[in-house]
Simulated assay, not measured.
Amino acid sequence: MTNVFAPAWLTDHNSYRVVARAEALALPKTADELIAVLQESVGERTVLLGHGCNVILSRNHYDASVRFVSTKGLDTAVVLADGLVKAAAGTRLRGVCRAAAQAGLSGLERLWDIPGSVGGAAFMNAGAYGASFYDVVASVEVFFPGTGEVTTLTREQCRPAYRLTAFQGTDAVILGVTLRLSPADPAAILREMGRIGKLRRSKLPYNLPSAGSVFRRPEGAPPVGQIMEEAGLKGFTIGGAQISPRHAGIIVNAGGATGADILAVVEEMRQAARERYGVELVLEQVVL
């Protein structure tokens, strides 16, 4: 790869569709290219964007001291055999769900229609409707840029918890996952995926750009969306960032939102939770 990092707009690389410019963005096409990019960047501030579905870009410009790596163009191999699904990190989670269903493999139905990549799901332990990604993870292939080591970790070594894994706060980069699924009737799997898809679209604001749930589920308090409704914040807007009128636990880009707009709304939501329930909301999204 030559001229690996180049100036680029990040608008299509974050699901909020915040307009931001980076002076250094790399778009590797294979796992080997990804490893080479990350090895070249050891010692530099490097941000692995994945598909950009759980991030808040806090600035409108990032100079070359911040290196972004997007996996949107990464190879998306999916291999199915003997109840196992092997998927590269850049593969869309939706694509893996669909491939598993067509092969008559059950276990991913409740994760259907969650946006983003397999790597992102493994990093954050994505989940919905009582199911989590690590419910079906057998192992995760990981690269450590600092040492150059590529290794395979068991599910237990990944230490999954609610929206948490051992990878957060480290330089570990997920290259791929192996999932262990159960045989089932493909038609029944597809029916359940259809039900989940309709449920999600009846409740969530698919009509505007967002990054999904803003906060982790609070302990000792109602769901975030309920707290915001009680506080009268449904539809609350700062700049182009709005607490969704459809689901008050989600911030949407209602038009021209900046990262600063989104973070200002985040603080209003935190304050509402403090005042009403004395809880400190924990941000699920990553601020860059």
Rank of each mutant, 00 (worst) to 15 (best):
G130S: 07
S106C: 14
Y134L: 03
S132Q: 11
I189F: 11
Q102M: 11
V177L: 02
V96Q: 04
V173I: 14
A184V: 06
E141M: 01
I174F: 02
Q168T: 05
R180G: 10
V150C: 15
L105S: 00
A187D: 13
A128W: 09
F144I: 05
L164W: 13
R94P: 02
V150K: 15
A161N: 08
T170V: 13
P183H: 08
Y134S: 07
G95T: 09
Q168F: 11
G148V: 01
M124R: 02
C97K: 02
V137R: 01
C97H: 06
D135A: 15
G146I: 00
F144Y: 08
L105T: 01
G169Q: 04
F167A: 10
F133Q: 06
R180N: 08
T151D: 08
W112S: 15
R110D: 14
G120Q: 04
F167L: 08
A89L: 02
G127H: 04
A138N: 07
P186I: 14
T152V: 15
T165P: 06
T154Y: 02
R92Q: 13
A161T: 12
V136A: 10
A100P: 09
V140C: 01
F133P: 10
W112H: 14
F123Q: 06
L108S: 07
E156V: 08
G130K: 06
S132K: 01
A128I: 13
P145R: 00
G169H: 12
F133L: 08
G119P: 05
E109D: 12
D185G: 06
A100F: 02
T154D: 05
G104E: 09
A184K: 09
R163G: 04
T152L: 04
V142E: 03
R155K: 15
T151L: 12
Y134A: 06
P160S: 06
A88Q: 15
G130T: 03
E156N: 09
A138H: 14
W112A: 15
L108E: 11
